[in-house]
Amino acid sequence: MIDLSQTASCSTKDLRAVRDALEVLNGKWKLQILIAILSGTKRFKEIAREIEGISDRMLSKELKELETHHLVVRKVYDSFPPVVEYSATAHTSSLDKVIYALKEWGYLHREKIIHASDV
């Protein structure tokens, strides 16, 4: 558990690190894509089917950005038609605690909002 009372004393370096992390994971889709790929190597259309509402163009853009940040590996097979698969890198596993914490906070927040509307 993080002691939030210490966040007030965050240094500029700490804030820069948080900003860097948010820049890599920003937006609606990146974490959803990573979670889809963490369960195993997938083809483009498999990822698209798992993530409701994402366009092919947006998925392609986000996958390229994740690849740039070494969180996704793209493998093209020399076949006809070409087969392209995406998988998580070893570096992606460094996000396990972040994803878990966000999931837990999401459940907590959802409960709070639901109970707040009962009042």
Results as ranks from 00 to 15, higher is better:
residue 48 A to L: 13
residue 52 E to T: 01
residue 114 I to K: 15
residue 41 T to Y: 02
residue 5 S to K: 13
residue 101 A to F: 03
residue 109 H to L: 15
residue 119 V to G: 13
residue 3 D to M: 05
residue 71 L to E: 01
residue 91 H to A: 13
residue 71 L to N: 02
residue 63 L to N: 02
residue 36 A to Y: 00
residue 10 C to S: 15
residue 34 L to Q: 00
residue 112 K to L: 15
residue 25 L to V: 01
residue 113 I to S: 06
residue 89 T to S: 10
residue 19 R to D: 07
residue 93 S to L: 15
residue 15 L to G: 11
residue 16 R to M: 11
residue 57 R to H: 14
residue 1 M to C: 00
residue 3 D to I: 06
residue 23 E to Y: 08
residue 86 Y to G: 02
residue 10 C to W: 15
residue 71 L to K: 08
residue 75 K to H: 04
residue 119 V to I: 15
residue 52 E to S: 05
residue 89 T to P: 02
residue 7 T to Y: 12
residue 40 G to K: 12
residue 104 E to L: 09
residue 115 H to V: 10
residue 42 K to R: 14
residue 26 N to P: 00
residue 38 L to A: 07
residue 35 I to K: 12
residue 20 D to F: 10
residue 24 V to Q: 06
residue 41 T to P: 01
residue 18 V to A: 13
residue 93 S to V: 10
residue 74 R to N: 02
residue 76 V to K: 14
residue 89 T to C: 07
residue 51 I to G: 01
residue 77 Y to K: 13
residue 71 L to G: 02
residue 88 A to E: 08
residue 116 A to Q: 05
residue 86 Y to K: 04
residue 68 T to Y: 02
residue 110 R to H: 05
residue 108 L to E: 14
residue 86 Y to N: 03
residue 44 F to Q: 09
residue 45 K to Q: 04
residue 32 Q to T: 06
residue 66 L to N: 06
residue 59 L to N: 05
residue 5 S to Y: 06
residue 18 V to T: 05
residue 24 V to F: 03
residue 83 V to M: 14
residue 24 V to H: 02
residue 93 S to M: 12
residue 86 Y to A: 05
residue 36 A to G: 00
residue 88 A to H: 09
residue 105 W to Y: 08
residue 37 I to H: 02
residue 105 W to G: 06
residue 62 E to R: 09
residue 8 A to E: 06
residue 49 R to A: 13
residue 5 S to C: 10
residue 46 E to P: 00
residue 47 I to R: 02
residue 70 H to V: 01
residue 47 I to T: 03
residue 65 E to W: 07
residue 63 L to W: 05
residue 66 L to A: 10
residue 90 A to Y: 12
residue 16 R to Y: 09
residue 97 K to V: 10
residue 3 D to G: 04
residue 67 E to Y: 01
residue 35 I to S: 08
residue 6 Q to C: 08
residue 94 S to R: 11
residue 31 L to W: 09
residue 96 D to Y: 01
residue 115 H to R: 15
residue 32 Q to L: 13
residue 49 R to H: 04
residue 19 R to N: 11
residue 77 Y to I: 10
residue 112 K to F: 12
residue 85 E to Y: 01
residue 66 L to E: 07
residue 17 A to C: 06
residue 96 D to L: 07
residue 5 S to M: 11
residue 78 D to V: 15
residue 117 S to P: 00
residue 8 A to V: 03
residue 9 S to F: 08
residue 110 R to M: 12
residue 34 L to Y: 00
residue 8 A to I: 04
residue 28 K to G: 00
residue 100 Y to H: 12
residue 16 R to F: 08
residue 15 L to A: 14
residue 39 S to A: 10
residue 39 S to Q: 06
residue 100 Y to F: 07
residue 101 A to V: 05
residue 99 I to A: 01
residue 100 Y to M: 10
residue 110 R to L: 14
residue 81 P to E: 13
residue 116 A to M: 08
residue 40 G to Q: 10
residue 75 K to V: 04
residue 104 E to Y: 02
residue 34 L to S: 00
residue 1 M to Q: 01
residue 68 T to L: 07
residue 76 V to N: 11
residue 103 K to L: 09
residue 94 S to Q: 07
residue 4 L to W: 04
residue 98 V to T: 04
residue 106 G to H: 12
residue 73 V to C: 09
residue 16 R to H: 07
residue 110 R to Q: 09
residue 64 K to A: 11
residue 23 E to M: 15
residue 109 H to D: 10
residue 3 D to Y: 01
residue 46 E to H: 03
residue 84 V to W: 07
residue 119 V to Q: 14
residue 85 E to S: 03
